[in-house]
Amino acid sequence: MTAKIISGREVAENILQDLKKRVDILKKKNITPKLVVVLVGDMKASASYVAQKEKFAVKAGIDSEVLRFNSEISESEILNQIDEINKDDEIHGVIVQLPLPDHISVTKVLNRIDPKKDVDGFTPTNVGKLFLGEETLVSCTPKGIMSMLESTGTDLNGKNVTVIGRSNIVGKPVSILCQQQNATVTMCHSRTKDLNAKLADADVVIVAVGVAKFINGDQIPSGAIVIDVGIHNIDGKLCGDVDFETASEKASAITPVPGGVGPMTVCALIENTIIAAERI
């Protein structure tokens, strides 16, 4: 079996076309969605990711601005900056690019963001609403994953989904989203005992454990759909949490790295910004 490649780039491009139509409607009401990205320090990976966000913003027709600060900025200065963003009615969405320098509390910073502008979906208010099944701004990577599964025509009703990774950013929220579509979800992580047994009856495998090639083809049930969230640079080559070559021989569909979940995460961020503007 040779797996179908689920191209995040292609799915994102299709979604962006629809998002632009929604932006055009807002602009007729004199509302132009605006996203602000707060970037602290000069990490190459963060800068690259921010550049992709700016590119997608242009395609969707929304405004975007990057506020860059050196790594020496104080925690209080960042918190004051977020307060100013919260008060600015022209700004509809804000994200703080992680990681932050050690002297700045991620918890304090995220909690300071107005939940209505929390387009990363990280504030306790939005996480709580997600858990309760209420309307909210959903975390971008989990939201992007669900869009990718939808693009394959997958109906999760009654399906077995195994999620490997329990982070607040991906594993936990994506498990909730799958349960909301009536999937039976098994949560695993790097310390799960007898992981192969947990994978044996999976219809969908979502891997976000943060370890290069943690899962290989021998562990993938024949015909399963595999979503690889990880990205690693090994000897100059990018790979994911899944060994793509062996897994693609067993899976019915699989996301590539790069070009899989990454573009969908950015696309979800743009959509959340538009949703925030639509709710005014």
Rank of each mutant, 00 (worst) to 15 (best):
F244L: 12
V211T: 09
I275V: 10
V58R: 15
K4P: 15
V119P: 09
Q97N: 09
V204C: 09
I164E: 12
A251K: 11
K87R: 02
A253E: 10
I78S: 02
R22F: 01
S7W: 13
I215D: 02
I206R: 15
V170H: 15
A251I: 05
V204S: 07
T152N: 07
R279H: 13
P221Y: 15
G128S: 00
I5R: 14
K44I: 10
M43F: 05
V242Y: 06
I113V: 06
P124D: 03
E72K: 10
D118F: 01
S7Y: 14
Y49L: 01
A12E: 13
G165Q: 11
A247K: 08
D203V: 05
A253F: 05
V94S: 07
K193Q: 10
P33F: 03
D155L: 13
L16E: 13
A200G: 02
K108S: 12
A277V: 12
G236N: 11
D120R: 01
V40I: 12
A47R: 05
Q180W: 06
D218E: 13
I73L: 01
G210Y: 09
L199D: 05
L269D: 15
V226D: 03
S71N: 03
G223T: 13
N30L: 02
V66D: 04
N30R: 03
I62Y: 01
C140N: 11
E271F: 12
I164L: 14
S7G: 15
N272A: 02
D243F: 02
I5L: 07
E249S: 15
I225R: 15
R22E: 05
S222P: 01
Q17R: 15
V207E: 02
G133T: 10
I270P: 12
K116E: 07
V161N: 01
A202G: 00
G8D: 14
D89L: 07
D63F: 04
A251G: 10
F122N: 09
V96E: 14
I25R: 01
R22L: 00
I234Y: 10
D63I: 01
P263Y: 11
K129A: 09
E134N: 06
K237A: 06
I274D: 08
S222N: 07
V119T: 06
C239I: 03
S7A: 10
P142N: 04
K159D: 01
T273F: 08
M146K: 12
